[in-house]
Design a protein around this nucleic acid. Structure first.
Ligand SMILES: [Mn+2]
Ligand SMILES: [Mn+2]
Length: 692
DNA sequence: GAAAGAT
DNA sequence: ATCTTTCAACGCCGA
DNA sequence: TCGGCG
């Protein structure tokens, strides 16, 4: 709908008085990797359709695509509405088809183009206008975007098929998050003071895409098999580089439905030829049916590989509005403009993540520190919980991780990690995971070291940031087990930060299936408390400060922080001597026996976890118990009064809010084992009877 | 749960 | 597009 | 060296 623009003083006479311009190319946006926030920038949703400039005068409208294709007849309703404005105008916008949910869908737009006039009426096609470049007798291209948008909003209001794009009224990161959630292609950031630069890919317009896509030329196809035997298996893609040479960009074999396969086959038939259009030799070119390079397709892809091929390409659609020489991968601007570096606030991004996790949708894309993390099945039940908590879902778990991250991450930092994954929840299959040899998200740190097991170097996962932590949560890693040594700082992974004691009750409840591990029971836990106090007694005598936590399952973990000047083997030997000493004093209640059958009724004093590559549930890790108990740091003075299921993912955060992290200073209170071993204080251990 | 393969 | 399949640790103990 | 073990 058109309005008379009355506030002449400010804007209407601001543009340059000029004759109605000849058609020009639209201003284009450069691609950047990460969303940003910066004053003086405006953020709009990136709409996925056909870009169109509309030239309106004398009661007629001319809609032209990027390539200059006339779109008037394809979109008659829009054309009519523009013509009815009966004003001299040039508008810039995107023609979009909306699906049932009101989401732009280029697939729908494409289908619409092929439908009969009557059938086409059922699809909602909208022209979203985001810029005005000429009004009455003025050329507005020299005005700032701010001024142009002021004119646009006064002149146009949204009608039936022509609507004005609303800027996203928030910062760039929020805008990007909103687009992720709504399934939009991305955002366009526009500098408010920038002029309109026809035909230029300007720094003043920056697009941030969820995934990248670009146009490529179909240059041949490989034969298909099975259901694809009658059409084709994959398409060979190419593009023209700056010197005009046709470059091979790899093959695309997914993204087609039966209808599209048939249509492409038909379109390709008349273009078939004997010779390759490429100058370069294409690998496995024997079976290829070559084509004269004429068909342009939009291809979505993850990235461009070193050898300039598309990685994970997916066919999106044919693009007849793109010129053959406008093809090829979209160059990515290395960084956002320098001024953006002074970006103001990094405000409450945690709060933003929280709101998205609390959103009722089952799947979301979280934006965490500039990383997009795909989260699925938020309502999947991971732990059955109890009558008080109800079932605990992935949503609950991710919220726990988000809340606990400031406390949890320092305990994970630089430590190789073992994930215990339960993709189908606690009752499903379980497996351990230390590596991720597929394509790893860029935010995940790893360390490479020699694995005796595989007799080669392997890459091990490390959790050094919130993105990684939430990614682990997404993958239903119900337990997080960390190594006792760190990658950083010096010296290395062979020198642990702790001597660890893993106390496991082998006191059976009687309800276990035969051969099963003992379940949590009060007798067993009472006994493990007793043993822990005996151990503390010895450590106190030597003058060693120790840290205590529940394992979260049935036992207790006791850690002695040490200066990193002793290797695992020595540590293990010391731990063993302590264990054997305790057995000599309390043989009825403590055992170091390896055979399970010999442990019955006793506490297994497991010194053997002191080894590189061995991991234990980290502080605050949930465990595979019905109620999602967590490994909870406790004060020695609390031990008499607690039980493992006092601490779960539903209440740990409250406890932290009250007591803080009882283990936060564990790395600041180290014992020097060298000094201790040479002091008389260790004499107590000489009481250990020598084994024969 | 993710990626690759089959139809 | 949808379904199916495969894969996802490791070091020490003691016989 | 290999199955048991956590
Ligand atoms: Mn244990
Ligand atoms: Mn154990």
């Amino acid at each position: 709908m058109l309005h008379e623009y009355k506030r002449k003083r400010n804007f209407a006479n601001k543009g340059k008085k000029a004759a109605f311009p000849k058609p020009f190319a639209p201003m284009l946006a450069k691609l950047v990797k990460t969303p940003f926030t910066k004053p003086d920038w405006i953020f709009e949703p990136k709409l996925d359709g056909i870009r169109a400039l509309s030239y309106i005068q004398n009661g007629k409208a001319n809609m032209l695509s990027r390539r200059g294709l006339n779109l008037n007849h394809r979109y008659p309703a829009i054309n009519q509405e523009l013509a009815d404005m009966d004003e001299r105008l040039i508008l810039d916008g995107e023609i979009v088809a909306l699906d049932a949910e009101g989401k732009p869908s280029f697939q729908l737009l494409q289908q619409h183009d092929e439908l009969s006039a009557t059938a086409a009426k059922k699809v909602q096609i909208i022209y979203y206008v985001f810029d005005i470049l000429y009004y009455k007798d003025r050329d507005l291209r020299g005005l700032s975007l701010n001024d142009r948008q002021n004119v646009l909003r006064h002149v146009l209001s949204s009608g039936e098929s022509v609507k004005v794009v609303e800027s996203l009224n928030c910062d760039g990161k929020q805008a990007f998050q909103i687009c992720l959630d709504k399934g939009l292609e991305g955002i366009v950031a526009k500098y408010a003071q920038g002029i309109y630069e026809p035909g230029r890919r300007s720094e003043n317009w920056l697009k941030v895409k969820v995934t990248q896509s670009a146009e490529f030329i179909i240059c041949g196809y490989n034969p298909g098999t099975g259901s694809r035997k009658s059409t084709f298996g994959s398409l060979l893609l190419g593009y023209y580089d700056n010197s005009g040479e046709l470059i091979y960009a790899g093959n695309v074999g997914t993204g087609f439905n039966a209808q599209l396969l048939a249509k492409l086959k038909k379109l390709m038939k008349p273009l078939e030829r004997k010779t390759s259009p490429f100058k370069e030799k294409v690998p496995n070119g024997r079976l290829v049916t070559w084509l004269t390079p004429e068909l342009v397709a939009e291809i979505k892809y993850a990235e461009i590989t070193q050898d300039k091929k598309l990685r994970v390409p997916v066919f999106m659609r044919l693009r007849e509005d793109i010129d053959l020489h406008q093809t090829g991968p979209t160059p990515v601007v290395k960084a956002v403009p320098a001024t953006v570096a002074q970006s103001i606030e990094e405000p409450k991004t945690d709060e933003l993540i929280r709101t998205h996790l609390l959103d009722q949708s089952e799947n979301v894309n979280l934006l965490v520190a500039g990383n997009s993390i795909k989260i699925t099945n938020l309502d999947k039940i991971l732990w059955p919980g109890n009558t008080k908590t109800g079932p605990l879902t992935k949503r609950d778990y991710l919220l726990y991780l988000l809340d606990m991250a400031p406390i949890l991450l320092p305990h994970l930092k630089d430590r190789p990690i073992t994930l215990i994954r339960y993709p189908s929840g606690l009752s499903g299959q379980r497996f351990f995971q230390k590596h991720w040899n597929q394509n790893r998200p860029s935010f995940v740190d790893t360390v490479e070291y020699y694995s005796e097991h595989n007799d080669t170097d392997e890459e091990y996962l490390i959790c050094n940031n919130l993105s990684t932590l939430l990614w682990f949560g997404q993958m239903s890693s119900l337990e997080l087990h960390t190594a006792h040594s760190r990658v950083n700082p010096e010296p290395d992974l062979n020198h642990p930060d702790f001597i660890v004691f893993d106390l496991d009750p082998y006191v059976y409840s009687g309800k276990e299936a035969k051969g099963a591990e003992p379940e949590l029971n009060s007798k067993g836990f009472a006994k493990v408390k007793k043993v822990a106090f005996w151990l503390k007694e010895v450590l106190d005598q030597i003058g060693i400060k120790s840290y205590l936590k529940t394992s979260g399952r049935t036992g207790l973990h006791i850690y002695i922080p040490i200066v990193r000047n002793v290797e695992y083997e020595r540590i293990r030997a010391v731990a063993r001597i302590l264990g054997e000493y305790l057995v000599s004093a309390h043989g009825a209640d403590i055992t170091v026996e390896w055979a399970v059958s010999k442990r019955t009724g006793k506490i297994f004093f497991d010194y053997n976890m002191n080894a590189r590559g061995k991991t234990l549930a980290c502080p605050y890790s949930p465990r595979s118990t019905a109620e999602a108990c967590v490994s909870a740091p406790i004060e020695w003075s609390e031990l008499s009064d607690i039980y493992p299921d006092d601490f779960t993912i539903t209440n740990m955060f409250e406890r932290i809010a009250e007591k803080g992290d009882l283990w936060s200073d564990i790395l600041d209170n180290k014992n020097d084992l060298h000094v201790l071993l040479s002091s008389k204080k260790m004499n107590i251990l000489n009481l250990v009877p020598k084994k024969t």
